Amino acid sequence: MHVRHLSFRLLQVYVEVVRCASVSAAARALHLTQPTVSLQLKRLAEAVGEPLFDASAARMEPTLAGRELYKAACDVLDRFDDFAGFLERARDGHAGHVRICVVTTAQYVLPRLLGPFAAHYPNVEVRLSVANRARVLERFDKREDDLYLFSHPPSGPSVRSARMLKNPLQLIAPLGHWAAGLAGLPFARLAGERFLMREPGSATRMMFEAWLSGRGLGLEKSMEIESNEAIRLSVASGLGLSVISAHTLQEGRERLAVLDVDGFPLESNWYLVAPRDRRLPYAARELVRFIGQHAADCIEAEWIYPDIGQVAEDFIKGG
């Protein structure tokens, strides 16, 4: 590879094309013409000396060499972004940017931390994305963000993960449901009810189905709804029962009953996740440290583990 033929612009163009899986979409995002982007890709492929995209694929899929180049390009660009942030911090105090992507249930809690963090670090730009678990996993695979918050994180040597907050799952019903107010109810008595479920791949659904399987239980009727808000409203309207994050339940205005069922609430947690093969930018490190030090000031104590401060420091160090 002729390294001297590479430039930051070539790497920026390539990263955008991989993320968009489209030359035209990347051109729009970069405010360039499509022929310009195509020419940049050609120059980059010539410099590398290997095909960067699989010509036989229906959409733009990087080859093995292309995937490795993508990782290297992300690392290089992030390193220099971090350096630029360091220079700004040296001149103006804390600065830089942090990109964080969270699953939909975490959208009810994380802003409570980001608001005070932004007030404490006014020169740090925070970019927050909210998506379902499948989309967050896709963003993690593409290294589109610095930090991720999962209730069922990915695993493997490329994953840096730490338990940060409690996320118990409650079984809810309409206020007038026959089981409301009963204590120690066996789940088998509810198996014939209609259960409202999130989409396949949802961490809440995965945990509930694993819990059922582990006890040899099953559901007779279920209905898929791809929104926590719609699930709350549907349960309140008498459409069925559901298992839902206590945080999601807390933020709703609907009048619902939390059933006292053996085995509930299901114990679940939110995990902070980052790619282990990439250096954690300065601003991201400061956000993790801030969460560890100030979570108790922003979130109810019942959701916070006593060791969150040490967990945060270990995460920063890569443990």
Rank of each mutant, 00 (worst) to 15 (best):
S158Y: 12
F140L: 15
S155G: 08
D145E: 15
R160I: 03
S151V: 01
D145P: 03
P154A: 13
R127L: 10
R127W: 08
D141C: 13
V130N: 03
V130R: 02
E144K: 08
F140M: 11
L147F: 05
E125M: 04
S158K: 06
D146M: 05
V126T: 15
V136H: 00
A162N: 08
N132S: 06
N132T: 07
P157C: 14
P153I: 06
A162T: 11
Y148M: 01
S129P: 01
H152N: 12
A162M: 13
A131M: 04
A134Q: 12
S151Q: 06
V126R: 07
K142E: 02
V136T: 08
A131Y: 01
V136S: 01
R135W: 06
V136I: 14
L149T: 06
H152A: 14
R143D: 12
A134Y: 08
F150W: 10
V126G: 07
A162Q: 12
P153E: 11
S151P: 04
P157G: 15
D141T: 10
P154G: 13
P154Y: 07
S155E: 15
D145G: 00
V136C: 06
P153K: 12
Y148C: 04
V126Y: 07
S129E: 05
L147S: 01
V159E: 14
V130E: 00
N132R: 13
R135N: 11
D141H: 14
V130G: 00
L137S: 02
R127G: 06
R127Q: 12
K142A: 11
P154T: 05
N132W: 04
V126Q: 05
V159T: 10
L149S: 03
K142M: 05
R135D: 09
V159S: 13
H152R: 13
L137F: 03
V159M: 12
R133Q: 14
S161I: 07
L128N: 08
F150P: 00
D141S: 15
S161A: 15
R133M: 08
R139Q: 13
R133T: 13
S151G: 07
S158W: 11
V130T: 09
V126P: 08
Y148N: 03
L137P: 00
L147V: 03
F140R: 08
G156P: 08
G156V: 05
R135S: 11
E144G: 06
S158T: 15
F140H: 02
F140C: 07
R135E: 12
S155T: 15
E125S: 09
V126C: 10
G156I: 05
P154K: 12
S155Q: 10
D145Q: 15
S155R: 00
L137T: 01
E138C: 10
R133H: 10
S161V: 12
L137Q: 05
S158G: 14
L137E: 09
E125I: 00
G156E: 14
V136M: 01
